[in-house]
Each structure stands twice: as C-alpha cells, then as structure tokens.
Design a protein around this nucleic acid. Structure first.
Length: 287
DNA sequence: GCCCAGGGTGTTT
DNA sequence: AAACACCATGGG
C-alpha cells in the first residue's frame, strides 16, 4: 500500500492487538503481525512498533480524521486504571493484565447490530456472521483492493442496506432466532425511528430507554452499544463471564457500577477472565 | 447425544 | 419481581 503513517504513542502500554481482538469488536483479523480491518469505510493495516504504531493505507489526515478517535488515543488509561483499582483493589491484576486495551469508539450502528447478533452466541460465530454480512451487504472500503481477507475490505452494511434483507436471508447467514430482531432493528434505524444523534445527546438513562425499546435489545446489549458505540464509559455490560467473575473472584466489583469508568473496568475483567478460562468456566469445564 | 455461548422475550408463579 | 421455558446454530 502506498500510503503509510507512523505515529508515536505516548501510552507505552497500548496494545493494538489486545484492543482490536478483544470481544468489543468482531471485525479485525491479524495477518503477519498486522491488524487488518475496516472502520468508517476505510481499510487499514496497523502494525505495532516499540515506540508507536504504523498505519498502512492511511496518511496523517486519515489518522486525525478517523483512527485517532476510533482507537481512543487521547485518553489517559493509566489514570483510569488507578481510579477503578481504587474502587476495587482486587482489580489490580486484571487492570495490569489488560493495560494495553483501549475502548474503541465504534460506529453506533455497527455496535448495535453486532451486539444484537452476539446474544446467547459465541465470539467466533459472531465474527463469522458479521463477516458474511459485510461481504454481502457492505460497500467496498477505501483501499479494499489491499485487503488480505475479502470481508475485511468491506464496510459494515448501512441500516438501509440491511433493511432490505429478509428474515429468511438472515437465517441463511446463520443468525438463527436473532434474524427477526435484525429485521426490526434495521427498519427502525433506517426509518429514523431510532436516531443516534438523539441518543448521543441524551442523558444516560434516556439513552438506555431508547435502545431498550428495540425488540432484541436487552440490558446487556444496550450497555455494550452505549459503551462501545457511544463512548459512555460508565456503562457496565454483564455477560455470563462477568456474572461468574462477580460471583467469585470479584465480589466487590459491583461497587464499580455507576462509577464513571465502570465500563473500562468491565473490559479489564473480561480480558482477564477470557485468558484464564480454567478459573471462570462454568463448572470448570473446557470449551 | 449433551453443554455452552459477550441474552432476550414471553409466560407463569 | 422473580423464576422459567424457549429460542437457532455450531463447536467442544
């Protein structure tokens, strides 16, 4: 790829891989040490060096316009780590383990759609379904010709594109019983019945209510959408893994709920328990 | 064959 | 309000 841009990263612990392959987003893949994927309609490959990151397929203007915000490069995660660990000291191990993780600023629609698909599902399957949707209904990204996996070079489908997809087709793509939810959610968003600009400006409880009004969106999905799609770092998604953690090794973790960076702490716990499954799997079973 | 997955809905107590 | 069955699908 012709374009190339290097940016020095002051947050030395920042990990591109841990951030992009982390269960908050289902679109990135790793090839030869580079993280490859599309956001905001642009395909990019990101390589981590000792002092910073190199973006292939992007220039400085792209970085400033898209990737700086998407990767949340301007936030002080060391400070956040201190704050959440102050609330629950037993977070120290998790916070250190996942210190390289940033909370991505994803497009709200992609977050909403992805996490509707995520319910009662597992991450590899979610990734597969999302890839199919992007391949079939997403527009080719800028720089798509360089993509090593074809789906990586497609934008996430617009609400309008998915509003034209039938329930049967969603089922054929492996969405299962979530197919009807996708039909409904796509229509509501495409029709303007759910307006992301309004959600952005709304107080958090109003924002929650608006998302919860969608069939197929419950408390956990709403928290994920607000955290990963709207930058509401106080939102605290509780999935089966987090629930088990709160019932066992992080019983004090509920004190985080409602605090300004609860969502970041949640991410630290999630990364930690997913990499130590033997301690948190149901009944100690293997997956 | 059973159990599980970044859960939610609808129904019954 | 709390408990419960049910929901599709693929991997372990």
């Amino acid at each position: 790829m012709a374009l190339q841009y290097f940016i020095t990263v002051s947050h030395k612990k920042f990990s591109v891989a841990d951030t992009l392959i982390s269960g908050q987003c289902f679109r990135w893949s790793e090839h030869n040490g580079r993280l490859c994927g599309t956001a905001f309609g642009r395909y990019v490959e990101i390589e981590q060096g000792d002092d910073g990151i190199t973006l292939y397929g992007a220039d400085q203007a792209d970085y400033e316009a898209v990737w700086r915000q998407y990767l949340d490069m301007d936030r002080d995660y060391d400070e956040i780590s201190r704050i959440v660990t102050g609330i629950e000291p037993r977070l120290a191990d998790s916070a250190e383990f996942a210190a390289g993780v940033h909370i991505l600023a994803q497009e709200p629609w992609e977050a909403l759609c992805s996490f509707v698909i995520s319910q009662n599902n597992n991450i590899p399957r979610i990734r597969g379904i999302v890839a199919k949707l992007c391949l079939r209904y997403g527009a080719p990204a800028v720089n798509a010709e360089f993509a090593r996996e074809e789906a990586d070079g497609h934008a996430f489908p617009t609400p309008e594109a998915l509003a034209g997809v039938s329930e049967d087709t969603f089922k054929q793509l492996g969405c299962g019983y979530r197919a009807s939810y996708l039909v409904e959610v796509s229509r509501r968003v495409a029709d303007g019945g759910l307006d992301f600009e309004t959600i952005k400006k709304a107080p958090i409880d109003e924002a929650r209510k608006m998302l919860l009004s969608l069939k197929g969106v419950g408390p956990k999905v709403a928290e994920c959408v607000l955290l990963y799609g709207f930058g509401r770092l106080e939102c605290f998604p509780v999935d089966v893994w987090i629930r088990r953690a709160l019932e066992t090794e992080f019983t004090g973790g509920t004190a985080l709920i409602g605090s300004p960076y609860a969502g970041v702490a949640q991410q630290y716990i999630f990364e930690y328990i997913r990499r130590h499954p033997e301690r948190f799997q149901k009944d100690g079973k293997k997956q």
